[in-house]
């Protein structure tokens, strides 16, 4: 039906393919909203991806398609070669494989203590109590929560700690693909950095696929190897950070800013200093500037 550029690839070992995906909320009503327009993406195993876009650009909608919470209105989403809209598709397996941490995940905590809450996911996977608890323990360690909090009520923790517990709740399911929808929203700078470092650390250890959704280029530039920029439901760029950040004007036109150092490098270059402008992290910039002066 769709002349897909990826058809020949389906069936090969690879995680997720979005093929001409459209998503429309409240179709055929006065509230109709075309949230995704002709999105084509391919998420490879082990990639660390940043998904960026202005408010309302369709990021949250896109990530919900990745684990089958929403089905595309048109087009198809393939998971390991199988179409998630098929009647006989194994949604349970998909949800075990693609872990989704929602925006403000701390709002979904409900158990009497932190440990029980983290056990909820693995238990739903049908694991024994012992295995579930082992995984919960590992996950809580991974997110760096202090042991003294394990048996407290999750509602007595601070915002950042709650966020960690919620992330652990998904991690404990040991998903192959981990999707985090704005994990740093509403945290202070220190809290943001802690969470982002923790996620980067996870990627290093587990080599799983990670999709990190964010408003802010600055947040993701240091960590990810690929950036997908969304604008009004469409994919605007899909490339390495260095390449994406060369489009300063275009990004500003869609209310996104490139990292501060990229601006500085651009201004330096304009002032006649021969530095590269596709620099995205402070460390790189330091090296580049020093190199320019022959040091």
């Amino acid at each position: 039906m769709w002349d897909s550029p990826y058809c020949h690839l389906t069936g090969i070992d690879m995680s997720i393919i979005l093929d001409h995906v459209n998503y429309i909320y409240d179709k055929d009503t006065a509230f109709e909203r075309h949230a995704l327009k002709d999105v084509n993406l391919q998420l490879q195993d082990g990639e660390f991806i940043g998904l960026i876009g202005h408010t309302g650009s369709g990021k949250s909608t896109l990530v919900q398609l990745l684990n089958g919470l929403l089905k595309p209105s048109a087009g198809a989403v393939y998971f390991d070669g199988a179409d998630i809209s098929d009647d006989d598709f194994d949604l349970k397996n998909l949800r075990a494989s693609v872990g989704l941490v929602f925006q403000y995940p701390e709002h979904q905590l409900f158990e009497t203590d932190v440990f029980q809450d983290v056990c909820f996911g693995p238990k739903n996977l049908g694991l024994s109590k012992k295995d579930a608890e082992l995984r919960a323990f590992q996950a809580l360690k991974q997110v760096g929560l202090k042991e003294e909090y394990f048996y407290q009520s999750p509602f007595d923790l601070s915002g950042g700690e709650k966020r960690r517990v919620a992330i652990a709740g998904v991690l404990a399911m040991q998903p192959k693909v981990l999707v985090l929808d704005e994990p740093t929203a509403g945290l202070d700078p220190k809290g943001r950095e802690d969470i982002l470092n923790m996620i980067a650390q996870l990627h290093k250890e587990l080599h799983n696929t990670i999709v990190l959704v964010s408003h802010s280029m600055e947040d993701v530039a240091d960590y990810v190897e690929r950036i997908i920029v969304m604008n009004k439901g469409e994919v605007l760029y899909d490339a390495a950070p260095q390449e994406v950040f060369t489009h300063v004007e275009e990004l500003e036109a869609v209310h996104l800013a490139v990292p501060e150092v990229t601006y500085i490098m651009r201004d330096l270059a304009r002032a006649g200093i021969k530095v590269r402008t596709d620099v995205t992290t402070v460390e790189e910039a330091v090296e580049e500037i020093l190199a320019c002066y022959g040091r």
Binding site: Q64, N67, L69, K92, R95, A96, G99, L100, F102, P105, H107, Q108, F120, G121, K123, N124, L125, G169, V170, M173
Partner: peptide
């Protein structure tokens, strides 16, 4: 709707 989705993502039925 949101909470339901979040718990479904954690394997709830």
């Amino acid at each position: 709707d949101k909470i339901m989705k979040a718990q479904i993502a954690r394997g709830a039925r």
